[in-house]
């Protein structure tokens, strides 16, 4: 019966995400627009773009994720659904893990899908593109998991958006450093497995601990 409860959670989250298409598309368009500003701003020289490309894409990904992150718990907190979730026969940590997974699926997977286009804008070479894809695949779930803790803590506040950014951006610095360094290694035809391994380790750590931290944050906000 408990697995049914988790499946129900996924189904609801997934259905409701696609009811608010504007909220899904906005961060994605923001991401594409920010990245496309750089060739205009710093000039179309292919070497410079290739040099700054990985950093630009990653910074844009982090900023656009903050934009979409806020709505992770906002609606469910305001309409009281989180209260009802806390009273079900399932662990809140497990339910939160599913919530974050669904959020990642609908907001980051499209971002990974449009990334070839951006790689083209910024003149990334093919090895750099594969490295970018690998770092996005490992790094974006990490953003979702860690971000959800801060969203859980700030959802009770009105206008928590800026606070959320201030709390989270410093936490994403290690992610940014290892992700861009992986892509730079790829640009120089070097192995980027060590950086990926570190990102992977961070992700596994996040998998293990963040669901509990998120559910605790949610309980604090319900109090």
């Amino acid at each position: 019966m408990r697995s049914g409860v988790y499946a129900a959670m996924f189904k609801r989250e997934y259905t409701l995400a696609f009811r608010q298409k504007a909220e899904l598309v906005q961060p994605l368009v923001f991401f594409v627009l920010v990245v496309s500003l750089f060739p205009l701003g710093v000039g179309p020289s292919p070497e410079i773009l290739q040099r700054i490309g990985p950093g630009v894409i990653w910074v844009a990904a982090i900023l656009s994720s903050l934009l979409g992150m806020e709505r992770l718990f906002r609606d469910d907190f305001q309409n009281g659904w989180l209260e009802q979730l806390a009273l079900t026969d399932a662990s809140l940590a497990g339910l939160m893990a599913i919530k974050v997974f669904t959020h990642w699926l609908v907001s980051f997977v499209p971002l990974v899908i449009v990334s070839p286009l951006l790689a083209l804008f910024l003149n990334l070479t093919e090895p750099m593109y594969w490295a970018l894809l690998a770092t996005l695949a490992i790094g974006t779930p990490l953003i979702s998991l860690v971000g959800a803790i801060a969203v859980g803590l700030t959802m009770g506040l009105n206008r928590g958006g800026v606070l959320l950014a201030l709390l989270l951006i410093p936490l994403f610095i290690p992610l940014l450093i290892f992700a861009t360094s992986a892509i730079e290694s790829a640009a120089m035809q070097l192995s980027y497995m060590p950086q990926l391994a570190i990102l992977g380790a961070l992700l596994l750590l996040a998998f293990a601990f963040t669901p509990f931290a998120i559910s605790y944050a949610v309980r604090v906000s319900l109090n």
Binding site: M1, A8, T15, D89
Partner: peptide, 27 residues
């Protein structure tokens, strides 16, 4: 069964869906 100030009814889902979601969630 707890029904609070906040009704936990999602404005984007219909009455039928809201009922089904709640029932599934609560087993």
């Amino acid at each position: 069964i707890y029904i609070g100030h906040k009704s936990a009814v999602d404005p984007h889902a219909s009455a039928f869906e809201n009922s089904r979601f709640w029932c599934a969630q609560h087993g």
